[in-house]
Design a protein around this nucleic acid. Sequence first.
DNA 1: CTGTTAGCGCTTTCAC
DNA 2: GTGAAAGCGCTAACAG
Lengths: 351, 351
Amino acid sequence: MTATLADVAARAQVSPATVSRVLNGNYPVAAATRERVLRAVDELDYVLNGPASSLAAATSDLVGILVNDIADPFFGIIAGAAQAAIGEEGGVRGGREKLSVICNTGGSPERELTYLTLLQRQRAAAVIVTGGALEDPEHAAAVGAKLARLADAGTRIVLCGRPPLSGDSVTATLAFDNRGGGRRLAEHLIGLGHRRIGYVAGPTERTTTRHRLEGHQAALAEAGLLLDHLVVHGSYDRRSGYDATLELLRRDGELTAVVAANDTVALGACAALRDRGISVPGDVSVAGFGDLPFSADAVPGLTTVRLPLAEAGARAGRLALALDPAPPGGIATVHGELMVRASTAAVRRAG
Amino acid sequence: MTATLADVAARAQVSPATVSRVLNGNYPVAAATRERVLRAVDELDYVLNGPASSLAAATSDLVGILVNDIADPFFGIIAGAAQAAIGEEGGVRGGREKLSVICNTGGSPERELTYLTLLQRQRAAAVIVTGGALEDPEHAAAVGAKLARLADAGTRIVLCGRPPLSGDSVTATLAFDNRGGGRRLAEHLIGLGHRRIGYVAGPTERTTTRHRLEGHQAALAEAGLLLDHLVVHGSYDRRSGYDATLELLRRDGELTAVVAANDTVALGACAALRDRGISVPGDVSVAGFGDLPFSADAVPGLTTVRLPLAEAGARAGRLALALDPAPPGGIATVHGELMVRASTAAVRRAG
DNA sequence: CTGTTAGCGCTTTCAC
DNA sequence: GTGAAAGCGCTAACAG
């Protein structure tokens, strides 16, 4: 039913090998022959059989991009940029077009492992793992082992927005400076006179959560303002920001600032304050992390740490294809930029 | 280096055929034998070779999900839900776990076709195409032909948030009632007394754009309020909403309402009005389409048409796996729900 | 530059 | 319930 390489070869009056060479373009073929083959391909509407090709060549053109939550623009932007970079550059350099695909783990450790196995099964050419890692040692070990096996089999591994892994299985790591960002945000608020600063953290056991919080607390500690009871954990969504902010208010009615785990959470925090009749930034300042597109448009505009998500994603894509040289030591740190907007202001109330 | 089926067979003292049967679980195997095989698999850390398996079986467990822009939560939510549904249900029913992957076309017709070809090459088990279609007849024909070939090869095709295609290659279509939603939104505004309603449309040549606009204009026409010059086209992003709104203001300074192609665009519209010192909804009402998570939190809360994106995506996923029965006639229409929030109000100024 | 020849690792009748 | 054998469709030496 479906045409095969042999059909094309017969029609073009050449050997199957020649057809293969034309299609893969990685071998010299006479122009006239190529022409004839291409015509036959067209006439038969032939499409290469991927599995057969991958089997014979012992490699595939699949590139997997793992994300924690694709409904979150944070990951959408990274993944979209990576996929675009792979799609664009895939054609260049003669290499066969890569099929880069996004795999949504939903934050579930099991699904993360499942996807890794599925990609291993497909003999993926590369895997990009994005976002914070779960800090459960058992799971971390399992992921590390999986990645090592993938790397053994020739799969390139790129980490994007995830802290480096020990071992040399990882091709390149693009780590976000979450600690530094958290610190700068806290320093900004301290500079504005805030002394009672609440923190809505992400899920426990996540590297992003811990690093942002550590940066935040380091700055507070230096200023002698560390208040442990002003940290509430929740998931990376709007609801969590809303609920956690109410909880913070309960714990300290004199709060003058709330720092959120990310922009989405910050929006939830703003909503909670608004619903309580508390003005932002008049009574309480709010800050986020990430600088998603909607953050500049929020009312008031959200002070946050801008992470160059699209750039990082694109670079991860290029690293996965070995189009970019790996950074020195295999690790590059991507820094955030403090974006001061209207949601933070000098403290007004008595601290 | 990597273990093969034969290795497992040798270790378990059975034939390769038996190992295959155990792994695929679709054939009777003695419990003791199965046990032995499974142990060998574990000990060797064996992972099935996907390409080899797909080649021999002439099918693969790849399911592709095409989206126009994965950085847009509209698509992130649909795709995430579809992927979750496939991941969950994939294990059930004994079928082998499916590898469902998201492919981001970035709205480019070429990339759409490229991805379809790549999926065809992989002999994908199913393809879910989401979001509005380009209305260019040539491209539509090309896509139709591709889908037909895919269907011929046994790939299940599901359309989600895309209008039905003629021909019987499509397994199931989940069409969004964009026309009805556009109409209800316009009627809502007309009911509030608005007479000069601007419309920020999406990109031309997109079905979603056209249908939403048609519904809008149908309602206006019935009320005798159709004003052609109050429609401006742009892309589905915030920037476009901002610019188009300024343009609408230029065309009619007496405007009392702006309807946007989607929520993101509506946010841009609000920003433009705010920057111009125009109050929403005091001076001008604004409405969006879709009801993304941030819309309820916008200030003021955004009036919009709620589309059950997660539900539709999940259903599309199940349809792709044939876990849900196809809707009668192969087509189900998904209706939107008007969400009236604070961004629209009765007209105050002289119309 | 092109053809010939072996497989790649698995599934699947067909026997037993 | 299990094994043997014949490919699935392609690529990659190796000749020529």
